[in-house]
Nucleic acid binder design. Sequence first.
DNA 1: CTGAAAGCGCTTACAG
DNA 2: CTGAAAGCGCTTACAG
Lengths: 338, 338
Amino acid sequence: MNLKEFAARIGLSQTTVSRAMSGYPEVKSETRARVLEAAEQLGYRPNISAQRLATGRAGAIGIVFQGGGRFGPHSSEFMGGLSTRLQKDGIDILVSTVETEDEEEAAYRRLAASKRVDAVIVHTPACIDSRIALLRTLDLPFIVHGRSEAQKPFAFLDIDNFGAIETATQHLIDLGHRRIALINGDTVSTYARDRERAYRKTLAAHGLAAEPSFIGHGEFTDETGFRLMQGFLALPLPPTAVIAGSMMSALGAMRAIRIAGLAVGADVSLIAHDDVFPYLSPDNLVPALTTTQSPIRAAGERIGDMVLRLLQEEAPESLQEVWPVDFLIRGSTGPAPA
Amino acid sequence: MNLKEFAARIGLSQTTVSRAMSGYPEVKSETRARVLEAAEQLGYRPNISAQRLATGRAGAIGIVFQGGGRFGPHSSEFMGGLSTRLQKDGIDILVSTVETEDEEEAAYRRLAASKRVDAVIVHTPACIDSRIALLRTLDLPFIVHGRSEAQKPFAFLDIDNFGAIETATQHLIDLGHRRIALINGDTVSTYARDRERAYRKTLAAHGLAAEPSFIGHGEFTDETGFRLMQGFLALPLPPTAVIAGSMMSALGAMRAIRIAGLAVGADVSLIAHDDVFPYLSPDNLVPALTTTQSPIRAAGERIGDMVLRLLQEEAPESLQEVWPVDFLIRGSTGPAPA
DNA sequence: CTGAAAGCGCTTACAG
DNA sequence: CTGAAAGCGCTTACAG
């Protein structure tokens, strides 16, 4: 049933019905009530494509994932939060996956030109990120999950990666550790750079050098954590403590430590950053894992909020948040071995 | 730029431009080439909402996730595959999350009435699933990831859960195990019922009883795997082998076995079903985990294929697949202890 | 092979 | 507070 039929059926004009259904103020409240009830009864719902064509709004936001690799456990939690929030306002989420950077760029161009979305969410930005410049050119509103450098202010939500790793490193130093390794993510993303900066700065503040051989990079997988940790342990003077970038890396690192016949927490201390996965809790590992913690699901919800405000023309500079990160000491960290 | 402007710019009618761009045969090939090149040059792309309104096709398919809980690692892999496939045909994916069954139903009604999607994907079906009946009523095409009972045939893709667990159980019996436990998913889904049926049938075929205390249910998380396994080990006569429904459950089970001072593979054999997560490989666990295996990402891609065919009016009964499941013997299974 | 025009189902300025 | 009508930007039967 379309608007014409529905309006005829209840003896009102299309105009009035349309206004009643979209919550315009200038409709008598009993008329509105009558319209809404009839719509419910007869199952009338405006055709979304027609609505979009008429208003020029897409009613959807886009998010692009590069490669299978990046659509992992972090993505699902983030998407869960985002979707929960946007659902409430009837905004759809359009998911695209691409393989290369060029394809990602093409995807934004396509989304913009065909007016498929009202805004996009950019994630895992690099310090200097070409996507930001591109989206500006395309005049496609965006929110960044993470941070990046740019002349003009833009909307973003990030966690305090620097503070998190500073706290973790400091804690290990306080426990007497002098040889501390870092399992980081890639080498270009802002979050990875912030974490490494915090690590180096805190070491330096205590007169400790950052050994290049103590810094590893790679995807946040069990496998990479395992491989990097094995590498550390094979060094002539291996680290007595490690900071892992994610729960997945930490799983691998713990395994490598055990295989080497060492005890996590006693021989090698371990801290991981925990994005809070409902199916994998640091409390449940043995020993329980000391973590820096920030729920990525909550970030997704908040970004949903922010994107709605962005679409209501709120200024990007008022849509900038940096969230503090919790630090939870559990059993995987202890005094440096004598 | 819209069609009118663009057509005027290159001196052709809107009709011809539209036909050239959507690949109609009745356009001279040099005209088409000229149009496509100009579109590329000038950045013209049809407004998607207008296109949808005119054709009556939404150009998108929907998928609804119930609760945060169900949007986990399985979902991400599946979505990665699905999205990769649909991307190629320019079909969007609309993701919705809901909290309750009623909300899920409401979501389908909304999607159908507002013509927001051309089809939906239903996942984790129960043996008798009300969603199927609902979608039939709504006349909204759908594909089921999994299987269900219904009078009329419908499109689905499932893996051979029965065969997988039959093979796993048989293997453990062949190794001399007589007390075998099962960590299953929920109690209503078809996959869980199929797995339990296979488990019971195989035990029965060897004159073994299925102890109720050896069957556990719950979400596929580390935590649940841990808790259930601890329960099994606390029994007066604990199992010597366990089949876990997912890699996550297996992680928890391994932990519980270790904490009890037992060795995985020697004291307690463990088999898990592996949906193939890029960040967590059974080869990398210690000992390496024996698994039944079927990549859920590939299933997502295939369902993408199938949904495209469904939209081209292919008959549902020709869109039904059951995929065999691989069995990979690794170090976590061994002869039953004497 | 190409074009003029109706129609898809809404919203919204304008008029009353 | 309500309505008649133009317009959003496409597609596609119909005519040539």
